[in-house]
Amino acid sequence: MDRFVFLTFDGLSKGAVLAAFALALVLIWRAARIVNFAQGAMAVAAAYAGYSVTTATGSYWLGFGAALVGGLLIGMVVERAVMRFVDHSSPLSEVIVALGLVLVMQAVLGMVYGNEFLPAGTPFSRNALSVGEVPLLSRYDLFVFGAVLLVLLGLALLFTRTSVGLRMRASAFAPEVSRLLGVNVGGMLTLGWALASAVGALAAMLVIPTELGLHPHAMDLVFVSAFTAAVVGGLDSPPGAVVGGLTVGLILSYVSGYLGSDVTPMAVLVLLLAVLLVRPGGLFSSTVARQA
């Protein structure tokens, strides 16, 4: 039982990061109908920016902030300089361009920083705090939960309570009508990419210290799990991304804990297949038919 409780909390902690990363994928899907396969590479690039600032200043928090700002800027540049000019008539061209971006970014990061794992620190201890005899969560896990929760609340407020959020949603759902109503749809798209990229950068900053360290490919496997989480939840649904992320995190933790870490990629694939067979649109997919 103790082990189950420990694995549950560990899974929720992993799942929180996956939820944030899945949310980044969902944000771009909703805004541009693109599965951003470059999300992992963009997040790693932002994390490297944070690493540079931390190394230069000695401050984790300055580096953390720089990674988030770097994520915003990378998202803006990728949308403005690359994705805007991609032929949107075929989804394949967007996928190919995104994969090309991954290769370019990872190659450039490798040339600039090297292909060795760089140490990534944490601002809080990763030693688990015990309740009774059961180790549950570390201070770092609490920080991860807090940061992800803050971002989720912030995004929820942005989208439901502000005029910018209303413009962003309208642009995503009905770009032509939004333009007729005076909305700068291109600007909203750029903002969507920037926000998604910043959320991805946050996920990278949270997860990389718990893995082997900073590396150009550090987010590759995380991307696979987060993509699964986004599809499980429904690519159109931010709450679905959160539930999908937590579900995938828990499954990864249980499978790894009880069956061994070699089996975890298989478990993710089985989950993805099961959801696609039973509910192809994802658990939280909208059943609303467009009538207007």
Partner: peptide, 26 residues
Amino acid sequence: MAHVPEGRGVVAELTVDENLRLGGLW
């Protein structure tokens, strides 16, 4: 100049109030 397109162009996913507010956000 306001254009109400064919098919009405209501944003189906937004509420009535959000659709109306959208018209005056600028």
